[in-house]
Design a protein around this nucleic acid. Structure first.
Ligand SMILES: [Zn+2]
Ligand SMILES: [Zn+2]
Ligand SMILES: [Zn+2]
Ligand SMILES: [Zn+2]
Lengths: 171, 171
DNA sequence: ATGCGATTGCGACTCAGTCTCAACTGGCGT
DNA sequence: ACGCCAGTTGAGACTGAGTCGCAATCGCAT
């Protein structure tokens, strides 16, 4: 178990405000960095319950708040309800492609989009502090399956005038 | 009260699937088109309760579902919890700038971003069906107030190396 | 008028997340 | 090593947003 750059950040974060690195917080941190990229709070809870101890839901949320606040973990509105969390690689940023079929989450980063965002903000005199940008649809793996399922009637629907696929806002 | 293009769309939508344009649905539709651009379900409920009748919460949600499904209304994840709804001008699309201070919602549309999105999708073989893109921060009107409040200590924090404002994902 | 599926209001329910509080640490000060 | 006490924890009550089940009603074609 290497010294984890992130762990020292967390430690520092706690120290700076007189908080303690308890065994629960450690356990959560470890579990978090041992696997998944994107997960939800209750998922983490279950995993910690089996392996580690009788940690409570409140503690999960409380600790996650600390991690988010310290910048080590990100909280994202993926999925239809609730949040998902993900560890953040220091200084990196990305947005998400989310498959409606399999739930797969693909991360992307498009510098040109990021800078256009800045331009939009400038135009409106808006000071951006954060943003979320996600596209929902069907991922490469699921496309064959879905399109065969839609077989017949899809052909008619596809012949929409205007050609270009229309993208509507939703989530 | 003009014939509303949208009303006829809704009417058609209902007809097509053997549903009825009840007085509740009418009332909701009217209220919706009489005002606000962005609103939440319970807001609508209250307004309908005072003016119109003893409409139930379930009906609000059910009707809103129909409107969303018919494409007349959009459901967006603005704000920290729950959804917001907004009437959609036929064929138009926009994304959002949301002020953390006053809650104001500014709509924007940047074609270049939209097309870059398409490119990202192509790159990953992803078929986008919808997307949501929102920036949170401080709007023009709130900036003076906020920056004066932050006065002193902000000066130090602003002297971050790297210059460019870092935008982190959140909502 | 009658019939029957669609619709409604109500209230119970779910789900994710928050709060309260008494019991329990962690770790500095001695 | 010992004690203290702010910080922390688990359990469970609670909240808010939205959903569900159902009996009573409604709308409309016959
Ligand atoms: Zn981004
Ligand atoms: Zn991610
Ligand atoms: Zn867009
Ligand atoms: Zn809008």
């Amino acid at each position: 178990m290497k010294p984890h750059r992130e762990l020292s950040i967390f430690r520092k974060y706690l120290e700076k405000r007189g908080l303690k690195l308890t065994s629960e917080r450690q356990a959560l941190f470890d579990e978090l960095f041992a696997r998944h990229e994107h997960f939800e709070a209750d998922e983490l809870l279950v995993r910690l319950r089996t392996k580690h101890k009788k940690i409570s839901r409140a503690t999960i949320y409380r600790t996650l708040d600390l991690l988010v606040d310290s910048g080590i973990v990100g909280r994202v509105r993926i999925g239809e309800s609730g949040y998902r969390y993900e560890r953040l690689r220091a200084g990196e940023h990305h947005d998400h492609l989310i498959c409606n079929e399999c739930g797969r989450v693909i991360e992307f980063f498009e510098p040109a989009i990021e800078s256009l965002q800045d331009q939009v903000c400038e135009k409106y005199g808006f000071l951006a502090l954060s943003h979320s940008h996600q596209l929902r649809g069907i991922c490469r793996q699921c496309r064959p399956r879905v399109s065969s399922r839609e077989a017949g009637r899809a052909a008619a629907a596809a012949a929409v005038p205007g050609g270009k696929l229309r993208i509507l806002p939703t989530a």
